[in-house]
Nucleic acid binder design. Structure first.
Lengths: 352, 352
DNA sequence: CTGTTAGCGCTTTCAC
DNA sequence: GTGAAAGCGCTAACAG
């Protein structure tokens, strides 16, 4: 910068003025400065600027696992918005591990990020170190119950309701749910939506139809197998995320059962490949990209708010969208049911 | 830091010494400094440090589209390694657009990243601004032909060979390939591997069996439809990436054809869901996570090499791994072929 | 071993 | 409108 100033025959502050463009500089000087910058291949040093201004224009994003297809979409939404607003993104992956999450938070702190977007990991203690300090922070997707502060997620209660309602509309009554890990708000909320719908239509929620615990494919397979082994198996299964859905589909395939003839299946999260399965999988789609975008926008507000008028606690809930495809259908007729149960049954006269 | 020093009753440089741990400090002083740091909730300012040392300990990663399942894995590998080595990652998404890529490079430059890992976009001009400056840079996956400098990718020629060989071993002779965009090194190389294998076994490479152009799902569907509409369609199809594979599978489903009975299909890139398709999809897996990790390690070497002994140009090629599942099988027998062609044929006596 | 000091490259008053 | 100068928080000589 000094060199640029010297080459252009002006002072350092003039160079600064043309770089930032906030102070008026006479056109001819401006031009000569720009020529000098080009000649020297000058790139303003954002680090020095940050040191001076106390603002880095960098935000941190922490996700539990970027290889889980939900997060790339979310990150993309946030990153697009951030880039547009002149912010850069430090990406951190916590591997679903609190210790990592905590150390990432400390690193982000040290790097003086202006704010943090976080999809926290199970048992996260992020709020302890962050929310308490009134540090700009937005929770995405997974909202810790303890944590104060701003958050954004799909309205998972509604999502759970919509999914269940779809099945109920198809006349299903025995609906199983592979509910995931209930310590995580999305799964907890989806189950609540499921309960709401079932109760609204006076359908019983059987203990053995509700399986919770893990959130991986294998957990879905196990849960699916358990559900299908029941004396009276459900006629429809709801899977609380994309991996569990894959697992359930696997369990069904292992038994050579067909969707939706033998039973209906649907899941939360709609990924590209869902529509290429056979049958194409019905799913509840989240507005993931939008969630990322709005998460950033909320964070930006918090960052740029004047000390006096902070954004008050804000919890955005976005609507989910049911995408009906071919893995859900009417309740299986008698003959299919028999196949499903793998038990002989007396032929009932007037089965609905 | 000044406050910490004051509280601990030592000088600033002593605080710096205990923070960095490179100079010996007497235990009691060290303890009192640490107490003061804790009391003041002191986090060393990485920005100021960077300004002083001229090293940011941040790298940039640029990918064309983080929502393409290949990249999260790659980024994860790099990020894991970077975190372990004390580096942070600025993630940039170019949206497969050169203008974005260029502006990201400029931002990363301004932020004084120590190096850049890039999976460049189509028609990238990244090398113009970067490689020429001898700036630490590693190309990942997509290697520009013009670009000098270090690179890492799967050995895609070998990958193409292995995939084709698998089909040839199954006695396929009429093999179609949905080759993707040949301006991108992975696709170009896979096609080369395909050619090598075909030539080695004296199999003809028919123009109408080779379809190139796009790399999206729709391109795969179109290509698949074209291939299946041929008078004499191929008995096996190779898809050059995960999206094209999805598209091909779709085209096959539209015709109510079954894999591998009617024709065999396999693709490059092996994603989680491939094994949950029916039949489970044969695929050539890339060591994506490892690629990311080693890309970072290579970059780190470049960053930390002494001005005298720079790392010379290095091109790492990692082996791909064929994962045989159920979408590939023997050449269809006569009756299937007839279904495939949708044309009547005289019954040949001794068809193999 | 510890303290003093001079900047890293920039922004930002404040005189001119 | 433009330049001089102070200082953001830290590190690394260097002197003690």
């Amino acid at each position: 910068m000094r060199d640029v100033a010297r080459l252009a025959g002006v002072s350092i502050s003039t160079v600064s003025a043309v770089v930032n463009g906030n102070v008026f500089v006479s056109p001819e000087r401006k031009a000569s400065v720009q020529r000098a910058m080009a000649a020297l291949d000058y790139h303003p040093d954002a680090i020095a600027r940050s040191l001076k201004t106390g603002k880095s224009n960098v935000i941190g994003i922490i996700v539990p696992d970027i290889t889980n297809a939900f997060y790339p979409e979310l990150v993309r939404g946030a990153e697009d918005a951030a880039t547009k607003a002149g912010y850069s993104v430090l990406l951190c992956d916590s591997s679903e591990n609190c210790k990592n999450e905590e150390s990432h938070i400390n690193v982000l702190f040290s790097r003086r990020v202006d704010g943090i977007l976080i999809a926290c990991c199970i048992n996260s203690r992020a709020h302890e170190s962050l929310a308490q300090r009134r540090f700009p922070l937005v929770y995405m997707d997974r909202i810790p119950s303890a944590g104060a502060g701003c958050s954004i997620s799909t309205d998972n209660v509604q999502a759970g309701y919509v999914a269940t309602k779809h099945l109920i509309d198809l006349d299903h009554q025995r609906i199983g749910i592979v509910a995931g890990y209930l310590g995580l708000s999305p799964h907890h909320d989806r189950l609540e939506g499921f309960r709401n719908a079932m109760q609204e239509f006076h359908l019983p929620i059987l203990d053995e139809y509700l399986i919770s615990g893990g959130i991986q494919v294998a957990d879905g397979t196990n849960a699916g197998q358990a559900l299908l082994s029941l004396q009276v198996p459900p006629t429809a299964i709801l899977a609380s995320n994309g991996n569990l859905l894959l697992g359930v589909v696997q369990a069904i395939a292992e038994r050579r059962l067909k969707m939706p003839d033998h039973l209906s299946v649907l899941g939360f999260d709609d990924y590209l490949w869902h529509r290429f399965f056979h049958p194409a999988l019905t799913a509840v789609a989240q507005p993931t990209h939008e969630m990322g975008r709005r998460a950033f926008e909320l964070l930006k507000q918090m960052i740029e708010s004047e000390p006096g008028q902070e954004v008050q606690e804000k919890h955005i809930r976005l609507p989910a969208e049911l995408r009906v495809r071919n893995s859900t259908g009417p309740v299986p007729q008698r003959e299919f049911r028999r196949v499903l149960k793998k038990t002989r049954q007396p032929v009932a006269a007037n089965e609905k």
